[in-house]
Structures are given as structure tokens and as C-alpha cells.
Design a protein around this nucleic acid. Sequence first.
RNA 1: UCCCCUGUAGCUCAGUCGGUAGAGCAGUUGGCUGUUAACCAAUUGGUCGUAGGUUCGAGUCCUACCGGGGGAGCCA
Length: 462
Amino acid sequence: MKRTRIRDIMAGDAIGQECTVQGWVRTRRDSKGVSFLELNDGSTIKNLQVVIDEEYHGGAAPEQQLANGCSVVISGRLVSSQGKEQAVELKARSIEILGEAPAEEYPLQKKRHSFEYLREIAHLRPRTNTFGSVARVRSEMSFAIHRFFHERGFIYVHTPIITGSDCEGAGDMFTVTTLPLENVPKNGGEIDYSGDFFGKKASLTVSGQLEGETYACALTDIYTFGPTFRAENSNTSRHLAEFWMIEPEMAFCDITRNMDVAEEFLKYIFTYLLDHCGDDMDFFDSRINRGVKENLANIVQSSFERITYTHAVELLSKTQAKFEYPVQWGLDLQSEHERYITETVYGKPVIITDYPKEIKAFYMKLNDDDRTVRAMDILVPRLGEIIGGSERESDLGRLKQRIIDLGLNPDDYWWYLDLRRFGSVPHSGFGLGFERLIQFVTGMQNIRDVIPFPRCVKTLDF
RNA sequence: UCCCCUGUAGCUCAGUCGGUAGAGCAGUUGGCUGUUAACCAAUUGGUCGUAGGUUCGAGUCCUACCGGGGGAGCCA
């Protein structure tokens, strides 16, 4: 018999139909003469209640073995439930156990486990409500992101994972090598990469932006969505050594349209999530972080406030609120400042633009005041910065000067500079970390719990 | 990398003033004709993270190391 997904059973009116379901037993409750199984197949957070009563004709499954965690094939008839917690239930006619899960050894109990413990059994944690929901939300969010860009004619560009440019400047890089580590060839004191696989030093990418710009300066509207690697020794609930990043890049686009697209982007994917992941979002809202749904709904409804960095500093200087870190023009805004502006001052998302050039990257377009650059950060309540972007410097001379001013070598950026030498155009883009986005929409506290197998400093267990 | 907290049963935790350990849940056994975190009863289960030290005596105090968590910095 064809396998029916539990999601489809829950969504439709299938009462009276015969069907076969396959899944894992989440829990069993016994009374004299009747047993109840909660069955989950991952297609939805909802469990299907299976009733084993006098009409059950048996099969290969003694009830004792129908333990939490075992996998089963169950055939029977869908009936309306006598219980109050569910509308439909499956009256079992036959049950076959595919794989047992000995109760004394199975690490997942039907009680609630701490996330710290579940991280130690990352191969089994997708069988829990929380991690099943995270996986479905990740998948739906990925799809929503691709759909947003696809609908607007953006080209999905696969920027490289391995990069030879040592100049991306966004963080510490992992080296990629086939050199024998026990006897690394050296030329003087320096490592000699000439005999290495690529004949030069190679690393894992820390950003696809510079490569993305090359394709934007040919295909106009592009985006990247791929893995990114940072070898930073940061041990926090917001950092991973391997994470996924989304980086759109648009030619013939100034900072204003960049902001328009970013605002539209966030509203689109949040709307998609609320429309398509209702059950999972209800779970996050009630069990993980009360208010996440309302927060997303408010963002979708709002019109993002747009202010300059200079104005933000004025706001922060005028307030009575106490901050741990000083507020002064020229210093970067701390997380506490960003949250004060978006939560207390405006109560909605805020886009801050035109930061001092000293605290932003070399490639951002210099304003006429020669002090600020066309950067834009989008801040949202409960998180702070969610998106960072800018209009890129399109003038060859000014870009070259910025590189020199920061003590970098223009020769390292020859192909990036070529984009300004030949057919240069105003262009803009932004980036956001996918896992931080998932953290934000689910309310999950630790970034290690929104990616299937987190890679962190001193952690590579699966 | 720095600061703070933490490590006790399979899981989540309690353990007072230093006197060799306890609860809930899970498991096991039994009971209960429709349960919903099912319920009721009984019961198994411990090198108290590791190594030193102080002490007549250490889960408890001290030191180091290891693991976990929170915060900072860096950043997405």
C-alpha cells in the first residue's frame, strides 16, 4: 500500500479512508485493552494518534516492542477521534516494526531534554519536536529566499568555496592545503606554497561578495547563497566556523534601492514563513520564545525607519537611558545601542546609513563629505543588526586610494579594480547570515541549534 | 582570547555547618476499557568530570586540567 504522509492526513478530510503510514513512535500510552501510539514522520510537527484496540488483528509487533523511538509501518482506517486533542486518529489493523529502539539504551526519552544534551546526540536530535521544526523552517526559508530572488529576475551565482585571494578581509581564514603538515616546505622562514595543490596559498571563502560583484557587473542582478567559513576563535551563541550566507548584488543600483530591496526581502520571507510554517511557528511561539510570531507580523506590517548614523548618535546622546559603552560620533554602535534605537525609540525596524568611513569596509562608496560611506545596516527588535550592506565604490581612483589608505596592496585586488576600470556602474548589495536569520525567526537562543551539524571552535563531533 | 557560572543516577536537578548520597522523570514489574506530559503501586539504578591537596573524615574547602553554559571582543 502507498505510504501516506502524516502531514497530508492532518491537512485533509480523510476520515473513513484506509491508509498506511510509516514513521517513528514518539510515545505510547496504555490502558487495559487499548493502547495509543503517537506517530511522527517528520512531515509535520503533529503526531498521528494510532489506536490499538480489540479490532487490531495483530502483526509482527508485540506491544512491548512498540517503544519510544522504534520505526513502524501501520495500516488501518482513519476515524474521527473520541479524544479531544485530535480530530483524526488511525485505527490500526496491522503493525510491523521495522527497527526496534531498546528503551534502556535509546537516548531520547519522551520528556523534554536540554539543548546542551541534544547537541551531544546531534544524529538523533532531528527526531525531537524542536529540531524537526528547525529543519522544516530552514528548508522553507531557503526556498522562500530563492523564490524571492527568482521572481525578481536575479541570477543565482555559485561563488567559489576555495579562494586564492587572501584579501577578502572579513575574518580569519581556514587554509586549504595538500602539503605534508608534518614537514611543510619552507623558503627561508616562509611556507613555500609553490608545491601545494594550487601552487599558491588557498583558503576557504569568508565571503562571496567580491566574486558576486563581478557577476553583478555583467548580469545586473545576482545573489549568492552558500557556505562560508571563518576561523575565528569566537565562542558565543551567535558564531559558527561554517555557516551559510545570502549576498545579493545589484548593478545600476544605489543605496536607496538597495534598502528598498532589503526591506522588501525581509517582509517577503517573513510573510512566507508565517503562511507556510504555521504549525512550526506556533510551536516556537508557545514553547521556545513567546512573541516571535507577533514580532515577525509587526515587521511585515511596518514601514522601516531610515536614519543616518549621525542622527542615531544624536538620539543616543540625548536619551536618559544608560549604556555600558560610550556613544560618540566615530565609534561603532554597540548591540545595546542598536536595540535601543529599534526597540525603544521606534519600535520597528530601522535602517541606519552613512557610517564613518573608518569603521566600515574599504569597498563602500565614499560620500561627498569625505567622512562617511554609503553603508546601511538594518536593525530589528529583539536582535539588532540583521542585514549589513552598502553601495559599492564604483570610482577606480577613489577605490584604489581607499585600499592604499587602509594599508592594503592594490595589486592583490587587480581583478576587483578591473570592474571599475571597464564599464564601471553604480552597484550595491547586502548580506545576511542564514543561521542568524533562522535564530531570529524561531527565537532559538543558540546558533548551534539552528544548523544540523554545527562546526565551532574545538567542536567537530559529527 | 578574556570574565563569570557550572559538572551528582539514563535525563533534569536538590544535597544545609565538611560526617561515604536524594527527588522527579525515564526504565523494569504489576494494576487500570479511550489515553493526551496519561494515571496508581512497587522497584532497579551512583568510582559525585579528572588528577592532586587540606582534613580524623571531602559531593561539599583549595589548586590544576577537561567538558558544558552565559557574557565580552571579533563578526554574519
